[in-house]
């Protein structure tokens, strides 16, 4: 008798999320999945094996969050999913009131990131999502850069009770790193400026800085920022860059607060917020246009080095 080798786990973050839902529902009897159509075609096994626990409300994003809030009030642990534009921006007041004000938790899992849907235009892009979620009390934001990180974050947060936003991107790193909420130093160098890469920006930052005299640290959890870890790595007179795959400056206030007692020079690199790009093309095109490919990041970081 021969046995089939198990299929290799998906490398794409969003695909891994869908694949992980069936075992997640097995392992966590309090979890329900709430959808607004998006994703429902990619989780047939979870839907078949867990009747009634994948709730698709149709293209009704206010109800998506409202229903999740109600489920949480009933003691359930909702995992809520659609594109970031329709998960965070469209029902923002529901996120504020039906989850936060009710003092209940949920795991919101978005797809689309800042410009994964580059060919779709502005309607399907949400670079401000992390800033918006971070503006509300009591949220944790995870921005994983590898599919294995997605699985670990999902299982941990499914067992929790808090308000959690997990941002999935088509951009990813080749290797997983610890998703414990801390800042991790991945490349050291004596007295060198520090570059903090968030989530899927890591490989781009490593490529951009391969021959630059900088240290590189990484986190998958920009909010709440690991202030203690940042202070430990930043030194007494910090020269620092933060490279984030969403709205530029999203972490600026948290970084400033962490370093308030030190004379510091901080560069924030991310998706510019002043203008709409109004171009289609590929995510790679958009990364280049925003200065978020290796060439663009390198140019910005060199300005910090002087």
């Amino acid at each position: 008798m021969t046995t089939l080798a198990p299929a290799a786990p998906a490398l794409d973050l969003r695909t891994r999320f869908y694949d992980e839902l069936d075992p997640l529902l097995d392992a966590h009897p309090h979890v329900d999945v709430v959808l607004a159509v998006i994703g429902s075609g990619y989780m047939s096994r979870a839907i078949e094996r867990h009747p009634g626990r994948v709730i698709d409300v149709g293209i009704r994003e206010q109800a998506l969050i409202g229903v999740a809030g109600g489920l949480a009030l009933a003691g359930r642990r909702p995992i809520v999913h659609t594109f970031a534009s329709f998960l965070v921006e469209r029902p923002y007041e529901q996120v504020k009131l039906d989850l936060g004000h009710q003092d209940v938790g949920a795991v919101l899992v978005s797809a689309g990131a800042s410009y994964d849907v580059s060919a779709g235009g502005r309607t399907h892009q949400s670079p401000a999502d992390v800033a918006l979620i971070s503006a509300l009390p009591g949220w944790t934001v995870h921005v994983p850069g590898h599919a294995d990180e997605v699985a670990e974050i999902l299982h941990r947060e499914a067992a929790g009770t808090g308000r959690v936003y997990v941002r999935l991107s088509g951009q990813r790193n080749t290797r997983p790193h610890p998703v414990d909420g801390r800042l991790h130093l991945l490349r050291d160098g004596v007295d060198a400026p520090l570059v903090v890469a968030v989530g899927p920006m890591l490989d781009t930052v490593l490529e951009a800085t391969a021959d630059l005299p900088v240290r590189v640290a990484w986190t998958a959890t920009p909010h709440p920022l690991d202030a203690e870890g940042l202070r430990a790595l930043a030194g007494p007179t910090p020269v620092l860059a933060v490279v984030e795959p969403y709205l530029e400056g999203t972490s600026a206030a948290a970084v400033a607060a962490a370093l308030v007692d030190r004379p510091s020079r901080v560069l924030h690199v991310g998706v510019p917020g002043e203008t709409e790009l109004r171009r289609y093309g590929t995510p790679r095109d958009h990364a280049a246009a925003h200065g978020l490919d290796a060439v663009g990041v390198r140019t910005r970081l060199r300005s910090l080095l002087g």
């Binding site: 409202g66 009030l73 003691g75 009131l97 004000h101």
Partner: peptide, 30 residues
């Protein structure tokens, strides 16, 4: 009303149009 402050108050409300969607989720969960 704020549900976290008052025994017997099941939801915080005031902004209109939130109670019925919450009730739907609550009914689904129960």
């Amino acid at each position: 009303p704020d549900r976290t402050l008052v025994p017997g108050i099941e939801i915080g409300s005031g902004s209109l149009g939130h109670g019925l969607p919450l009730a739907v989720g609550l009914a689904l969960g129960l």
